[in-house]
């Protein structure tokens, strides 16, 4: 009973975190599912978003301007990864790792030290974990919820435009796209930029939510993003066919991920084991389609043999 009531009181916080990371997960969805590229920039660009936003806020910038600049900074990191891939021929995974590594230094430079805090008592913020149970606009559930609805609407529109369709085509079939006159290199860079813009935007929200930005705040972000994508698809893939609903399922995947994590912690799991647990869960879910295929093949093989015996 104790545990359930603890869980219940932690719920608004878990859902808030899930929504904030959901923005990042949408970014991961764009590269991983739409562009068919595994982009590891995110661990760095997430922290870049947080760092840029916190430093601007500390210097008295308008809050939404800080969010916008965090988004643009994220796009810039994506442009670097895209550029390393397109102009220097480096495979996307490696290009992302290189950017991620260099961002560690850059984020330290932006913040001047490893950690910078923004105190809600001294500075005005868009959201804070302190307000999760308040019925007001600055409750993270409400602010981030509204932003997510707007974001999904804009992305739904964008991926239905000529340009957006050509990005989807690039991810679906590069050869066909080129044959249809699509600049696939440009599209890949653009897609990675949009993705990392969203990731940094999410980092900027998280920094305000937790009251600080940290160079390590993005560590393992890619795994959380993948977990959200995979959980969302596993649970809602059959019913959510529409593109906007698919994005929504990614966000729901992220929320569920955080509720589960919270539950596991409440039940007494050592918090240090969390990253291991996340990695194992993602690994298993990534393996499921492969196992399914193997199983189906073996099944077919047996059936084939059975047929021959009967003949």
């Amino acid at each position: 009973m104790e545990i359930i009531s603890q869980l219940f009181s932690a719920l608004p916080g878990s859902v808030s975190q899930g929504l904030i990371w959901g923005i990042m997960a949408i970014g991961v969805y764009i590269t991983y599912r739409i562009l068919d590229v595994s982009d590891l920039t995110v661990d760095g660009s997430f922290a870049t978003g947080g760092a840029v936003a916190v430093m601007l806020i500390l210097n008295g910038s308008d809050l939404w301007l800080a969010m916008l600049l965090a988004f643009l900074a994220g796009m810039l990191t994506g442009a670097i990864t895209g550029g390393l891939h397109i102009f220097m021929g480096i495979p996307p995974i490696l290009a992302g790792i290189l950017t991620q590594l260099s961002l560690y230094s850059i984020n330290l430079k932006i913040m001047d030290k490893a950690n910078q805090s923004v105190n809600v008592n001294q500075t005005d913020l868009l959201i804070s974990l302190r307000w999760v149970k308040e019925f007001a606009l600055h409750n993270p559930l409400i602010t981030v919820g509204i932003i997510l609805v707007l974001l999904i609407a804009v992305l739904y529109w964008f991926f239905g435009t000529e340009m957006g369709c050509s990005i989807r085509a690039t991810g679906a079939n590069v050869q066909m796209s080129r044959a249809q006159g699509i600049n696939t290199n440009f599209n890949k860079v653009l897609g990675i930029m949009i993705s990392n813009g969203l990731v940094a935007f999410s980092g900027a929200f998280l920094a305000q939510y937790q009251g600080f930005a940290d160079v390590k705040m993005g560590q393992g972000a890619i795994v959380i993003g993948l977990a959200a994508v995979i959980i969302g698809e596993a649970l809602f893939g059959k019913i959510f066919k529409n593109f906007a609903l698919r994005l929504l399922s990614v966000v729901l995947g992220s929320v569920i991920y955080y509720i589960v994590i919270q539950a596991v912690i409440t039940m007494g799991l050592d918090a240090n084991m969390l990253k291991l647990l996340s990695a194992v869960i993602v690994a298993v879910f990534l393996a499921i389609p492969y196992w399914k295929k193997q199983y189906a093949q073996r099944h077919m093989f047996r059936k084939g043999k059975g047929g021959a015996e009967n003949a």
């Binding site: 435009t161 000529e162 340009m163 369709c165 050509s166 796209s177 249809q180 699509i182």
Partner: peptide
């Protein structure tokens, strides 16, 4: 229809107008 719409825009700049 999306495949056809992509092909119908071969040689044209892809803008922010509707994809189909």
């Amino acid at each position: 229809e999306e495949n056809l719409a992509l092909a119908a825009r071969r040689g044209k700049r892809r803008t922010l107008r509707k994809g189909i």
